[in-house]
Design a protein around this nucleic acid. Sequence first.
DNA 1: TGAATTGCGCAATCGA
DNA 2: TCGATTGCGCAATTCA
Lengths: 136, 136
Amino acid sequence: MAPKIEGIDNESGEDSSNGSSTSRRPIKSTEEYRKRRERNNQAVKKSRMKTKMKTQQMVEKVTQLKNENEELEENIKILNKELDMLKSIFVAHAGNAHGVQVNDAELSRMLGGSPEVDEGASLLMSLSQAPPHNLA
Amino acid sequence: MAPKIEGIDNESGEDSSNGSSTSRRPIKSTEEYRKRRERNNQAVKKSRMKTKMKTQQMVEKVTQLKNENEELEENIKILNKELDMLKSIFVAHAGNAHGVQVNDAELSRMLGGSPEVDEGASLLMSLSQAPPHNLA
DNA sequence: TGAATTGCGCAATCGA
DNA sequence: TCGATTGCGCAATTCA
């Protein structure tokens, strides 16, 4: 995390008194050094490519999710519309020639499912108050 | 796009014959150079920060959209369930003591709205075939 | 022309 | 120990 002052080449853990030569400056050090640098440069390049790819994929992911979202909202709109239709028909029919034969208790029994409707918009509430089921 | 061989310091567009000194090597060049380098380093840092922020925000955006998506799917499930309920009630009621008073033509008229239901799942189809409205 | 962006290499540090 | 990450500076290039 704390790079050196920059520019200084204090590399190689090798000691200057190399066991394979009388050279004042270690030979193997330098060639080994270049070899290592080259490998690291390669690794860096690879790593950065990877990062770029990930970023790119995230951009795509975002647009994809946005589209999915739009479709879902659209479907919810349609479903709500259909629900409203059915409710109107239901009510109209009920108030027509005869009283409704199912009361709330019966409805509750018939419904049964959807135990925990988080948005407070159950069928019964829909029937009585008709709040559009959107919430997004 | 094509960096130099690296390490060579061929900088400064200044001419060696600087108009403010007799020095063979331009003085202003060097100080100007450092000044520019410093500014660029600053700009680079800034730019990279910006990039990082954007990336981070995208990560958050993705999780946010995923959550929203989940909620929407959940709501669609609920709506479909409610729709099914209403339909059962409707059909049961119809087949009970008297015939259905609304035929398809009437229904069509009553529906009116939702001009272009893209998924082929209109109310009428729902009533006759009951295909769950999911499609996500 | 000056700021912003980008490719690249170096060194430190991390992680297995 | 060695590849992967990361902060940083340099120079070329792009943008405004």
